[in-house]
Design a protein around this nucleic acid. Structure first.
Length: 471
RNA sequence: GGCCCGUUCGUCUAUCGGUUAGGACACCUGGUUUUCAACCAGGUAAGAGGGGUUCGACUCCCCUACGGGCUGCCA
């Protein structure tokens, strides 16, 4: 806990609701969450829905759902940027009153013409200079106008960024950006600054596609005399081929990862390590991540998604997860993947089987596959390969075996000598005997340990399955 | 076009002027074994290119190449 006198850390995640929660957005949210949680701070959520054309309530719901699945809880109510439009307009007018902004009556056609003329002169791209910047208000026409920032024309704006270092932008390369549109609605550049300020955001951790924008936004902070937050612009995530992540790379939405069966804790671990490092730390719990995470460890180069490593990381987490929690999340996966839920009987068996198989699975589908023997019920249908191991000799051995199993005490120690004897009696190794046992119990040639399966399904079920197979 | 950011094994990264350039994933080999995994041991593999600065550069500076971003009355 930080001392009461120290300013509290406040971070935020501010997605625009135009689609599902992108994997890159998920990581940005995670970094903000980690940073705040590790410092006893607050993590806020704001939906940037000022673009009424593209914003949808479905997208907002999908984003909240994605964050919830990732386990990133936010503090307070979700803020709608759109609902704060009056406040944004108020600030724009205050800037007007302070003289740090002005009314511009130039039409979009005039701006286009201005640029065309400059290009014709040979200039490549021109910063638009509004003729209204220094116009006399008495000459204002009775026409629609936008409010533009009166940005400094000379000098430079310095962004001190925790990730990118000191970034210097020449003011002459920046135009007088519009803060309030002609319809009275705010632009993004104004809205973010006003909201971040009003929400008390102290650390802005976001994608580095906003690095240049930070200079413009910093001008608004200065214009209003507000305290500039700590900036941390993090590199975006790229696809395995190093290109910007897109649909072409497959899964880009967080919810797809849940449906593919990656546990949330593994996802958090992987995403934390993607573009951030602290020494050789690779596998860590979320609690440890909260303690370790810092801005210093964030790299400056975009990182590529690597599914093999994601799987490996998830495998570690499935193995170290508490059984009850694992079972609960497994059921969540089943629902997300639109698969039938576990019956009460299956639920109990899976609970028993989990300890024996969880350290062998990397994902939930993987886990389900390995749990198959505990999910099925008699009669066990053997696949062709497994069926082939149930020849007459093997069936004979199984018939001999079942009576001895009836009276055995049901522990691995007690079962081992019985099975070893059965194999020895027929002059075969245990491996040879294991094959028909797998076929009888699971109907497959590849299964978890024979003993583990027997112990999980119990004596009666084991004997029944062996008897079925020995027919 | 202009401006900004980036570039260490295939991938994620450590290194913060002096190291046999370390770890993890993947891959290969061997071990273990009851199938598949897991696990254990070992191995292959890197500073984009070129100039400087320095006794000494992966590390600092410049140029080039390549990648990315911004340049909207989108966010």
């Amino acid at each position: 806990m930080s001392a009461a006198s120290e300013p509290q850390v406040v971070t935020r995640f501010a997605p625009s609701p135009t689609g599902y929660l992108h994997i890159g957005g998920g990581r940005t949210a995670l970094f903000n969450w980690l940073y705040a949680r590790g410092r006893g701070g607050k993590f806020l959520l704001r939906i940037e829905d000022t673009d009424r054309e593209r914003s949808t309530p479905e997208a907002t719901a999908a984003i909240l759902k994605g964050l919830t699945w990732l386990g990133l809880d936010w503090d307070g109510e979700v803020v709608s940027q759109f609902e704060r439009r009056d406040r944004h307009a108020e600030v724009a007018h205050e800037m007007l009153a302070r003289g740090t902004a002005y009314k511009c009556f130039s039409t979009q056609e005039e701006i286009a013409a201005f640029r065309a003329a400059k290009e014709a002169e040979g200039a490549s791209y021109a910063v638009f200079l509004s003729p209204w910047r220094d116009a006399d208000p008495t000459g204002y026409p009775d026409a629609p106008y936008v409010i533009r920032m009166r940005a400094p024309r000379t000098g430079e704006t310095v962004i001190v960024d925790e990730v990118q270092g000191r970034v210097v932008i020449k003011n002459e390369t920046l135009d007088d950006m519009i803060v309030l549109r002609s319809d009275g609605t705010p632009t993004y550049m104004l809205a973010v600054v006003v909201d971040d300020h009003d929400m008390g955001v102290t650390h802005v951790i976001r994608g580095d596609d906003h690095l240049n924008n930070a200079a413009r936004q910093q001008m608004v902070y200065d214009a209003m005399g507000w305290r500039i937050p700590v900036w941390a612009h993090i590199p975006l995530i790229h696809g395995p081929d190093g290109k910007k992540l897109s649909k072409r790379h497959g899964a880009t939405g967080i919810e797809e990862y849940q449906a593919m069966g990656y546990p949330a804790a593994g996802m958090r671990n992987y995403l934390t390590r993607l573009g951030w490092a602290q020494g050789d730390a690779e596998i860590f719990s979320t609690e440890e991540a909260v303690q370790m995470f810092d801005l210093k460890g964030i790299g400056r180069a975009p990182a590529r998604l690597n599914f093999k490593k994601l799987e490996n990381t998830c495998g570690h987490h499935i193995a170290m997860m508490d059984n009850a929690a694992l079972l609960h999340e497994l059921e969540g996966y089943l629902a997300a993947a639109a698969q039938p839920a576990l019956t009460p009987a299956q639920h109990d068996r899976v609970a028993n089987a989990l300890p024996a198989v969880k350290d062998r699975a990397k994902t939930f589908p993987d886990l389900i596959e390995k749990l198959q023997f505990s999910l099925i019920s008699r009669p066990v249908v053997a696949d062709p390969l497994a069926a082939a191991t149930l020849d007459s000799v093997s069936r004979g051995i199984l018939r001999e075996l079942t009576p001895r199993l009836q009276n055995a005490s049901w522990t691995k120690e007690a079962l081992e000598p019985i099975l070893a004897d059965a194999a020895a009696a027929h002059g075969i190794g245990f491996g040879k005997l294991a094959a028909p046992l797998r076929a009888a119990i699971a109907g497959k040639t590849v299964t978890p340990s024979v003993y583990d399966m027997m112990l999980v399904i119990g004596r009666d079920e084991t004997v029944a399955r062996l008897t079925d197979a020995a027919q």
